[in-house]
Design a protein around this nucleic acid. Structure first.
Length: 228
DNA sequence: GGCACCCACGATAGGATGCA
DNA sequence: TGCATCCTATCGTGGGTGCC
């Protein structure tokens, strides 16, 4: 074991950890201790380096514990769990939340994490001379999205019967119920899908160009939502 | 090469638990 | 009740790695 004090004064909180059998000063043998020599300078540098190392490690542990405390507050009935059990509980909690989100998503119009375009015929909803088409677009919410969407639909011989929109966490899902004349639905379906995909592609392109995915190791910063 | 960070390790303290 | 044992948290340290 090579343990020595990491600060100039005795550590009041950790003093009892110091083994009584070790020599003082630690890591400095009597044979190598030369007053005013380079050995002393080297050892002083080593001591400073070690102090900085132990302080950095302390800060790192504090960061970990801060995040664990945050998790403890976010998960129900986790106030008195040890760290390993807490992490297990967090995993279970996240799985449960995901399952509930999926349930809700199946019941209501809720945007998902995946970009998606669907276009399908609603044969049950067909009127006497008009054909019903159900189209949906799920993507990141952007101010220009609706302009793009209107432009995409413009020119297609479609009539909007209904439009639903749901947003969640910066994501948006638009569900459009459209109608077209019977006999024109075939051409409409493929054109509509292509137009919506083009809108999606435009969004994906602008999104990727604005992201910085190359964060270096030193750029690790606490996201703002963690500090809330 | 220096720095910052991460990970693993051994030492230690202190609480929880079981047992005589 | 006192003691032994186990478990968990914390600490300092050595060493590896990536970045500048």
């Amino acid at each position: 074991m090579a343990k020595f004090f990491s600060s100039g004064s005795l550590q009041e909180t950790h003093m009892s950890h110091w083994p009584m059998v070790l020599p003082w000063p630690p890591h400095v043998s009597t044979s190598s201790c030369q007053v005013g020599g380079s050995e002393t300078s080297k050892e002083a540098k080593a001591l400073i380096s070690s102090q900085s190392h132990s302080q950095a490690e302390k800060r790192r542990r504090e960061r970990i514990n801060t995040h664990l405390s945050t998790l403890r507050r976010l998960v129900p009935s986790a106030t008195k769990l040890d760290k390993a059990t807490l992490l297990g509980r967090v995993i279970d909690h996240v799985k449960e939340l995901k399952r509930k989100a999926l349930e809700i998503g199946n019941s209501f119009t809720v945007p998902t994490e995946m970009d998606d375009v669907t276009v399908e015929c609603d044969r049950n909803g067909a009127l006497k001379d008009r054909f019903i088409i159900r189209a949906s677009l799920c993507c990141d919410d952007r101010p220009e999205l609706y302009t793009d969407l209107i432009q995409a639909l413009h020119g297609l011989k479609l009539r909007t019967v209904r439009a639903d929109m749901a947003t969640l966490g910066g994501r948006v899902k638009n569900v459009l119920i459209l109608s077209t004349k019977v006999g024109e639905e075939g051409a409409c379906l493929s054109t509509l899908k292509d137009s919506l995909k083009e809108v999606l592609g435009r969004i994906v392109f602008t999104d990727v160009s604005s992201q910085n995915t190359n964060l270096s190791k030193r750029q690790r910063t606490m996201p703002s939502f963690w500090s809330n």
